[in-house]
Design a protein around this nucleic acid. Structure first.
Length: 629
DNA sequence: CACAGAGGCGCCCTCTGCTGGAGGTAC
DNA sequence: AGTACCTCCAGCAGAGGGCGCCTCTGTG
């Protein structure tokens, strides 16, 4: 706005000023610029329709005269609201361009039409505008004429008044409002006040529109207004209770005992924000808001905390900070649980955890969040965005907490571990300890039975510990002899010695074997044309043996020192000392055991009562052949 | 008009807990 | 070799704390 003076500031000079009624009714001129009369028909229309009327006005810049003109609303008869009770002061004074005498209050910027107004469509009314109120070189203002039961937003949006401009309160003197009262307006005994809003119209138009709001001032002894009264309220209505008036906004439930508050309030229904930040061009409704905003640019923080070195732009921020950090006052308490918060919004957010309300719906999946922040975080799962990067290894993460955990676990040597209170297991993360507790130490209603004994357990950890007690014992005992072993498959193979069962049959020569491994070896030796017998040669005397065990027996006689060296090798230690007459058990199904599994266990089992049948037993030679492979 | 007070909204953060894949180990 | 199991680890969501910025109202 090119205004040299804030219109609202100008208007402040006259707001709440008691305006005098009076002056002769002015005869309207044809198409008149100085017409003061309003046709009676218009007044009747006013009473019947009680709808918003707009008045066009043009400005004669030189003389600073506003020329008012009724503007027909598009869908109905046009009428001139409220003007019927307003009287125009002495036309001469109204049209006088010279300001009032020094020190005198400025002229009212509104029309005053007295008695039977004769307002018609296109009727123009002229009146002067005090320089303090309106400067023609400024951007044209809006005048709002608001009246009872008006519909603020007209069908023609172009004519809809912008409620963000200046305003003034006009007050009827006794008797002036009779006409309107008789037409179904305010009740007898009520004071009539009109609020005039003055705001700029569209740019480039040499017109202004006045809006006058009727103000209902109720007497003290009147009962409180019913809900219906509220619903049918005026655009602006006051209720007098004793000496206290209540001003009500017609656009929202707002009421105030002070007209200034109402006047200020009405601006919130406007988009007009005349105060612009010179740094970011953002606009604000009031100077205070602008100042606070500018402080955010400049870093000015006038409100300093007395308990710490924090400082804030607004007092509200300081109060809130003190509650969070120093006083711990939490005025907002949950009615369902004992949660309390410093801020109402936090309580509102908390209540959603009770209600399950999830107002923030993801547009890409079925997820819905209880607050906007969670939804924003969730959206990273769709976008793949990982804004948090590890400064050490450059790994990226979707959440800051995940990054923090990563750094602690991967790059922090002093990270604390979590020890299980039940089993002393040390686990890196608390959450994983919880998983451990749940899996290992939680009570299970279903008993887990031990495979080797009648014991049963409700806790998995106890069960596992019990199982370990069976680990080193030869828990598989032969029912026919004293043989015992640790593994079931060994026992199965052993029992066949007693039962004579030989389930593995050579299809070529019909020879039967107790173990599959023996059948396999048989097939290789006797039915494989590519089979080459292994020669085991004594390094001392170069004598060859077909069987490795025979070689070992030979070595004991030929070179006792070589035998000593052999015993130093752990893997050789086990088997060379085994008497070649002993057999080594094979797997339960006769499968060959891997070299790594051919450990002392097999040896012990074999010595514990194994078969001496070399033809069917797995010889040491066979084992070493397997290892060579 | 300035200021205090109250409050809304958004953003960022931490703490917490669950889940499932990866990798190692025991059987 | 296959399987079961366990811990590690990243991903993800729930809940809540704290603050920045802004808006609006009551009051002097």
């Amino acid at each position: 706005m090119a205004a040299t003076k804030d219109p609202s500031e100008q208007f402040t000079q006259i707001k709440e000023q008691k305006l005098k009624l009076g002056g002769p009714q002015e005869e309207e001129g044809e198409g008149g610029v100085q017409g003061g009369q309003i046709q009676e028909g218009a007044v009747e229309a006013l009473a019947e329709n009680k709808q918003l009327e707009l008045l066009w006005a043009s400005v004669e810049s030189d003389s600073q005269i506003l020329t008012l003109q009724t503007v027909p609303l598009p869908s109905q008869e046009v009428h001139m609201p409220g003007l019927g009770w307003l009287s125009v002061p002495d036309p001469e004074s109204l049209q006088a361009t010279e300001p009032q005498a020094e020190g005198a209050p400025p002229l009212p910027s509104v029309l005053w039409l007295n008695q039977e107004p004769q307002c018609s469509i296109q009727q123009n009314v002229a009146f002067s505008v005090p320089e303090e109120l309106y400067l023609p070189e400024e951007e044209l203002p809006w005048f709002h004429l608001l009246r009872e039961n008006m519909t603020v937003v007209g069908e023609d949006q172009a004519l809809t008044p912008n409620l963000g401009g200046s305003s003034a309160l006009m007050k009827f003197e006794e008797g002036q409002e009779n006409q309107w009262l008789s037409e179904g307006g305010l009740n007898q005994g009520e004071e009539c006040c009109f609020l005039v809003e003055m705001m700029p119209r569209d740019e480039g138009k040499e017109d202004v529109v006045l809006a006058i709001s009727s103000v209902n001032v109720e007497e003290q002894d009147k009962p409180a207004p019913s809900q219906a009264d509220v619903e049918n309220t005026d655009a602006v209505k006051t209720q007098r209770k004793g000496t206290i008036r209540t001003f009500r906004c017609d656009l929202c439930p707002f009421t105030s005992s002070k007209y200034s508050s109402l006047s200020r309030h009405i601006k919130i229904h406007s988009d007009k924000k005349p105060h612009m930040c010179h740094l970011c061009l953002k606009t604000f409704r009031t100077v205070t808001l602008l100042r606070n905003h500018v402080n955010t640019h400049t870093g000015t923080r006038p409100y300093k905390c007395g308990n710490c070195n924090m400082a804030f732009v607004t007092n509200g921020e300081l109060v809130r900070h003190r509650r969070y950090k120093h006083t711990y006052e939490k005025p907002f308490k949950c009615s369902i649980c004992n949660y309390a918060s410093v801020e109402a919004s936090k309580l509102k957010r908390h209540v959603r955890s009770h209600t399950g309300e999830r107002p923030f719906q993801c547009c890409l999946c079925s997820y819905a969040s209880k607050d906007a922040c969670k939804l924003k975080r969730h959206m990273r799962t769709h976008s793949g965005e990982k804004p948090y990067q590890c400064s050490v290894c450059s790994a990226r993460f979707t959440q800051s907490g995940t990054l923090k955990m990563h750094v602690a676990q991967k790059h922090d040597e002093n990270v604390s571990k979590y020890t299980c209170p039940h089993c002393a297991a040390v686990i890196a993360r608390k959450s994983d300890l919880r998983v451990h507790l749940r899996k290992m130490h939680s009570y299970s209603p279903v008993e887990t039975k031990c495979r080797y004994c009648p014991a049963s357990f409700h806790e998995r950890f106890a069960f596992i510990q019990h199982q370990k007690t069976h680990k080193d014992e030869k828990k598989f005992k032969c029912q026919y002899c004293d043989y015992a072993c640790k593994q079931k498959h060994c026992m199965v193979a052993h029992v066949r010695i007693h039962t004579g069962e030989k389930p593995f049959v050579c299809v070529t020569c019909d020879k039967h074997f107790r173990q599959k491994q023996l059948l396999t070896e048989h097939l290789r030796k006797f039915h494989d044309p590519n089979f080459v017998p292994t020669e085991h040669q004594c390094l001392k005397c170069s004598r060859s043996f077909s069987r490795w065990t025979n070689l070992q027996r030979h070595k004991k006689k030929c070179d006792p020192e070589q035998q000593k060296l052999a015993t130093s090798n752990k893997t050789v230690l086990i088997w060379p000392i085994v008497d070649s007459s002993q057999k080594v058990s094979e797997g339960p199904g006769g499968e060959a055991q891997l070299p790594g599994e051919l450990t002392l266990g097999h040896h012990e089992e074999s010595t514990g009562g194994g078969s001496k049948d070399l033809d069917e037993g797995l010889t040491c030679e066979m084992i070493f052949n397997m290892m060579d492979k």
